[in-house]
Computed example of a mutant assay.
Amino acid sequence: MYENCETEIIDIKVKLDEIHKDMRTFIEDSNREHLESLLAFVRDDYSNILEKHLINDIKAGLSKNMVRKCERLDECRSVFTDMLQKNAALIKEPSVDSDIFDKKRIDIKNLRKGMPYDKCDICFSEAADLFEKQISLMQSMRIYETKKDKKQDISQIPSQSVIDDVLDPLCHPKRFEILKAVSSQSMSFSFLSKLTGLRGGNLLFHLQKLSDSGMIIQQHERGDYMITSKGFKVMQSISEMYSALAPEEMIS
């Protein structure tokens, strides 16, 4: 009698667990559908406003941060404005293929190669920053989603690749400090030396680690260091993870 009762209780618990899982799945799906409908509403009703915001951001950024004493100023500003405005117009689209942005990044790099001055780095850095800000907004609106943005089964994550490509390059405090610094703007070797307190070969070792992992690049020989798309995504992910896990008083 007691054994039968115990078996029935176990069966009830199993069924309750199944019901709970079904309810949780239903709630998650409902929330996801609700979020998608809200985002679709925002895209449809506010796409013109968002595009105008991005265009104003372009004008303000280029006017403030491009090198003023340059005979190519007007020409380059026109090229950057045209490129960024066309990119901003994509916010009206329901979705944008990641290949489009990858091609635009390559176009920016190729355009830089044809410029004659070291000071051109400043203007191209500003244009690249504005470009990435536009992409970040589109990602938040679910207009643009890379394959890496989609959730992956934890069991399928390649352990050694994650360690070699992400965890090992960031495990040293100085390398993490460097990646944080170049996340907002390009940095020279001398500036990073002052920032980290490292000199010569010691600093070069850590920069090479980050470069080999594809998180930073040197704009040209002896040029400034800047974060790559991969490095920026890694830092964004770390920021989101830290914000979710850290006590409020630590992130306020």
Rank of each mutant, 00 (worst) to 15 (best):
N4D: 13
C5Q: 08
C5R: 04
E6I: 15
T7R: 15
T7I: 12
T7H: 13
T7A: 15
I9T: 10
D11N: 14
K15M: 13
E18Y: 05
H20G: 04
K21A: 12
D22M: 13
M23S: 03
T25R: 15
T25D: 15
F26K: 11
I27C: 05
D29K: 15
N31M: 11
L35S: 05
L35R: 10
E36C: 00
S37C: 03
L38K: 07
L39K: 10
A40E: 09
A40F: 04
F41D: 09
V42T: 12
R43V: 05
D44G: 01
D45E: 11
N48S: 15
N56K: 14
K59G: 05
L62E: 04
R68Y: 08
E71C: 04
R72C: 00
L73A: 03
C76A: 03
S78Q: 14
S78L: 15
S78E: 15
T81M: 06
Q85T: 14
A89P: 07
K92G: 11
K92P: 04
S95N: 14
D97L: 09
D97H: 13
S98W: 09
D107W: 01
K109V: 14
N110P: 03
R112Q: 11
K113F: 15
G114I: 13
D118V: 14
K119I: 07
I122N: 13
S125L: 02
E126V: 11
D129S: 12
L130P: 02
E132S: 14
K133C: 01
Q134S: 12
Q139M: 14
R142K: 13
I143K: 08
Y144T: 02
E145V: 11
E145C: 08
K147M: 01
K147W: 01
K148Y: 06
K148A: 04
D149T: 04
K150W: 04
D153W: 02
D153S: 09
I154T: 10
I154Y: 09
S155H: 12
S155M: 13
I157K: 02
I157P: 02
I157V: 09
P158Y: 13
S159M: 06
V166H: 07
L167A: 12
H172R: 05
P173R: 10
P173S: 08
P173L: 12
K174G: 00
K174P: 01
K174I: 14
F176I: 06
K180A: 00
K180M: 02
A181I: 00
A181P: 00
M187S: 06
L192K: 00
L192E: 03
S193E: 12
L195I: 01
G197E: 11
G197M: 07
R199M: 03
G201Q: 12
N202H: 12
N202I: 11
L203E: 09
L203S: 08
H206S: 02
K209V: 08
L210Y: 08
D212I: 06
G214A: 07
E221N: 12
R222A: 03
R222W: 08
G223E: 06
D224A: 11
Y225R: 01
I227H: 02
I227T: 05
S229G: 03
G231Y: 05
M235T: 07
M235F: 05
Q236A: 14
S237E: 14
E240G: 03
M241Q: 10
S243P: 00
A244T: 07
L245H: 07
P247V: 10
E248Q: 03
